[in-house]
């Protein structure tokens, strides 16, 4: 981690390394979860080479793609949606995304077919239909893709739409001196990676952030007023040690010896 003396680093030049180019289709920025390197390599390389987007691989902790200040995209294979087994997990995951993002899109991607393999034929299930209708009922967007290349194309289109609505990501570069602040912001409940990043870029110090009004938080973190209120309440929430689960409370007392 950075030494505390790195205060001298003016953050002006960094802002200019990722300019907001008005020309569409180029240098738009997408954040990709590092787990996607193993499962969606072709998506990432298509985004970079075919569509020329700025792709930043970050530890997004389960959010597959963040394509704007408010929108997350979940890439899901069709076979996983078809079976009841992973339904609960999927629902919980989407609920978690709902707590962090204003807009969610699910891309249902067809599984890669092996030559001659007919056993994985698509057979529509009731589980699949009910998931789709619940998503539609909750206003979550669904897109269907035939493979990783098409998924990349859809991501690009989504990011263009979001840019047109002025929700595009300005800069995804994290200055090493901001890493600690980023981790701090990320620990606030229901704050997404992009929101934490915006806070890093827009607030001159963590103290400044902690003393901001909901309006200032809303403007700097690029979040809705409701979300800004939520963050504001958290910053001003009065801690009560009695409310901590007792095991954790006692652990505090005796963990002196084993603390790192």
């Amino acid at each position: 981690s950075a030494a505390p003396s790195s205060t001298s680093a003016l953050h002006v030049p960094e802002v200019h390394t990722a300019p907001r180019l008005p020309q569409e289709g180029h240098r738009a920025c997408i954040l990709v979860d590092s787990r996607e390197i193993t499962s969606g390599l072709e998506v990432i390389s298509s985004l970079r080479t075919v569509h020329g987007l700025q792709v930043e691989v970050c530890p997004l902790n389960g959010c597959d793609y963040i394509i704007s200040n408010r929108m997350v995209v979940e890439r899901k294979s069709q076979s996983e949606m078809l079976h009841n087994g992973s339904k609960t997990k999927f629902i919980e995951h989407i609920q978690r995304l709902q707590s962090m993002f204003q807009r969610i899109c699910v891309i249902v991607e067809k599984d890669r077919e092996k030559a001659g393999d007919t056993s994985r034929m698509f057979r529509r299930t009731k589980c699949y239909d009910s998931l789709l209708t619940s998503l539609v009922g909750a206003g979550i967007r669904i897109l269907f893709s035939s493979g990783q290349e098409e998924t990349a194309d859809l991501l690009k289109e989504l990011s263009l739409v979001e840019q047109r609505k002025n929700a595009g990501i300005h800069s995804a570069v994290v200055n090493p001196s901001k890493c600690e602040a980023l981790q701090f912001y990320l620990s606030i409940p229901s704050v997404s990676y992009i929101t934490a990043l915006n806070m890093c870029h827009q607030f001159s110090s963590v103290k400044k952030m902690a003393n901001s009004s909901p309006e200032e938080i809303s403007a700097c973190a690029q979040v809705t007023h409701q979300k800004a209120e939520e963050i504001y309440r958290y910053i001003h929430y009065t801690f009560d040690i009695q409310m901590l689960p007792s095991d954790l409370n006692q652990e505090t007392v005796k963990s002196n010896a084993c603390s790192v």
């Binding site: 989407i94 909750a138 600690e180 620990s187 801690f239």
Partner: peptide, 23 residues
């Protein structure tokens, strides 16, 4: 609809401890 159900928030105390631990 599971996606319209309001999820209950975890205890703020626990989160606060975790936030302060990031310092």
């Amino acid at each position: 609809n599971p996606f319209l159900r309001k999820k209950r928030c975890a205890l703020p105390e626990l989160s606060l401890v975790q936030t302060v631990q990031q310092i």
